[in-house]
Simulated scan of single mutants.
Amino acid sequence: MAHYAHLSMDEKEKVLRSFEEKDANGDGQATLDDYSTFFPSYNKSGRIRVALIDLFQHLDKNDDGTLHFEEFITCSYVLFDSKYRFCDSCGSIVWGVYFVCVECYK
């Protein structure tokens, strides 16, 4: 929410419109199916679906199976303003620090 609070009015409107597009029935929440349209339609590696479910579950703070606007704001931040990586093996999103120098790896 801190990130959202510092967006320009145009950027806030863009996030709100994006959420409204994903909220197919207008009930103020996006299901996994609604939310899946948030990801690009292409996926060269075949891992978007695994990452989609992983990210959705992390963002669904109250475990009700939907994303409310506040949870969706976090989604927009993660996908557009931060760098996320996928696990080469299972396709899940890699959370946290994932690069270290050779000395630290040892």
Rank of each mutant, 00 (worst) to 15 (best):
A24E: 11
E21W: 00
A2C: 01
K14N: 10
T31Q: 11
C104K: 09
Y4K: 04
D23A: 05
L59S: 12
E11C: 00
K44V: 11
C101T: 10
D33S: 05
V78P: 01
K106W: 08
T31W: 10
G28L: 12
A24C: 06
F19A: 10
D23N: 08
A51K: 12
G91R: 02
W95Y: 06
A5F: 03
M1P: 05
H6R: 15
V15D: 10
G46A: 11
D64I: 09
H58A: 04
D63E: 15
V97A: 13
V100D: 07
I48A: 15
K12H: 02
V97L: 13
A30T: 14
K22H: 09
E71A: 13
C75Q: 03
L79A: 07
V94W: 02
E11V: 00
P40E: 09
D88R: 10
T37G: 13
Y4S: 04
A2H: 01
L67D: 06
V50M: 08
C104I: 05
G91P: 01
S89H: 13
G46T: 07
D27H: 02
A2D: 10
L16K: 14
L59G: 10
L55G: 04
E21S: 01
V102A: 10
F19N: 09
M1D: 11
H58T: 03
H6Y: 05
E20Y: 01
G65K: 06
K83Q: 11
S89Q: 13
R17Y: 04
F39Q: 03
D88H: 11
I73E: 14
A5I: 04
D23V: 03
S36Q: 07
G91N: 02
